[in-house]
């Protein structure tokens, strides 16, 4: 026997989602910085393969990732900024 599902316990569900979406948006550049600085940690080349080639692929992959995430967030971010301001 289950208790009846409690719907809408938290009434401002949409605004809550919007605020978390903005949090995610805020995190994007931080994610970008962290990822784009990692190639610096790559050690000296021991296998003989091109590190510049890998770095090239890596940098552009991160770039595409950021663009896609940013586009997704922008898509779901509500244009009216009623719940402006603080979380």
């Amino acid at each position: 026997m289950k208790p009846p599902t409690q719907r809408a316990v938290f009434l401002a569900r949409t605004t809550y989602r919007q605020r978390r979406l903005r949090d995610a948006l805020r995190m994007l550049p931080i994610l970008g910085v962290v990822l784009w600085l990692t190639p610096l940690l790559w050690g000296a080349d021991e296998t003989g393969s091109s590190r510049t080639g890998s770095a090239f692929v890596f940098v552009f992959t991160v770039w595409v990732l950021l663009i896609v995430l940013s586009a997704i967030f922008a898509r779901f971010l509500s244009p009216d900024e009623q719940a402006e301001g603080e979380s």
């Binding site: 600085l37 190639p39 610096l40 080349d45 393969s49 091109s50 510049t52 080639g53």
Partner: peptide, 24 residues
């Protein structure tokens, strides 16, 4: 092109960290 990058003198990855971060 990737093969050419690997073969070129640019393939060596000895990026100066200060410049990389500083330029970003």
């Amino acid at each position: 092109v990737m093969a050419q990058i690997d073969a070129s003198p640019l393939s060596e990855w000895n990026q100066n960290g200060g410049r990389w971060a500083g330029l970003i």
